[in-house]
């Protein structure tokens, strides 16, 4: 670690693998600048150091964060996630979003939600929801409305199958430009997909074989390189016809 001078510009670390303890920024050399820190970073006096292993990301003008792939999800406000109703309480639905604690979905957090038209969710209902609040030591709060109070795409997902993946895979599924595997599959087959950043994705199609094929192709593509993905998909799609 000593080999890395603390005064190196952050650009050397951006999109690189970083490990806990790496100092990515020296604040003393960058006066009069505002930077925003995301997950996995910490300010130690005059330096910004890394707290978890992953890839350092940077977006203009000033946002830094560390991305990594996990089996579990750490809730953060603004994420779109797939949740499963675990329990119903008078004020809240308890929803599992793969986080350390169950999330609360207030019964009024629906478009035009009043005390009179509380939706009835069975235990095990699959929901596409938005994380509104996520603080340490508190249960995260969810909502089935967008910021404008509209239902948008949020709500119950019917039929289909929910696949569990890593958080890294669901992030690549949501990336732009679109994930090549998803694009290639979409050209040949017709299916619906909903991706939660919490490492879950839901696929629906008219035929159950399509759902299984799409889901497994996506899961398998995670461990393949770009070229391997191409070959794998070509083979797969040939077999369909």
């Amino acid at each position: 670690m000593e080999a890395k001078p603390s005064s190196t510009s952050p650009s050397t670390f951006v999109d690189q693998l970083v490990v806990p303890g790496d100092v990515i920024l020296d604040l003393s050399s960058m006066a009069n600048q505002t930077i925003k820190l995301g997950g996995g970073l910490r300010q130690d006096g005059d330096s910004i150091s890394v707290m978890k292993a992953g890839t350092l990301r940077f977006t203009k003008p000033n946002k830094y964060w560390v991305e990594s792939s996990h089996k579990r999800y750490v809730p953060s406000a603004g994420d779109n996630v797939l949740g499963v109703v675990v329990d119903t309480k008078p004020e809240n639905f308890l929803v599992d979003i793969k986080g350390p604690a169950l999330a609360f979905l207030p019964v009024l957090a629906f478009e035009g939600g009043t005390r009179r038209n509380i939706p009835k969710f069975e235990v095990g209902t699959l929901l596409y929801v938005r994380v509104v609040n996520a603080n340490t030591g508190m249960n995260p709060e969810l909502s089935c409305m967008d910021a404008n109070g509209k239902a948008a795409e949020y709500g119950v997902l019917k039929e289909g199958y929910m696949f569990e993946s890593s958080t890294g895979l669901s992030r690549t599924l949501l990336s732009s430009p679109p994930y090549p595997v998803l694009e290639a599959l979409g050209k040949k087959l017709s299916f619906e997909i909903a991706v939660g950043i919490n490492g879950r994705f839901w696929v629906n199609a008219s035929q159950s074989s399509t759902v299984i094929l799409v889901g497994n192709a996506i899961l398998k593509s995670e461990s393949l390189s770009l070229v391997q993905q191409k070959i794998y998909l070509e083979k797969l799609l040939k077999n369909i016809q």
């Binding site: 499963v84 095990g124 699959l126 039929e159 289909g160 199958y161 929910m162 759902v211």
Partner: peptide
């Protein structure tokens, strides 16, 4: 293990 109704049915 948390199973959704969707999964069970599917």
């Amino acid at each position: 293990l948390i199973m959704t109704l969707n999964e069970k049915k599917f």
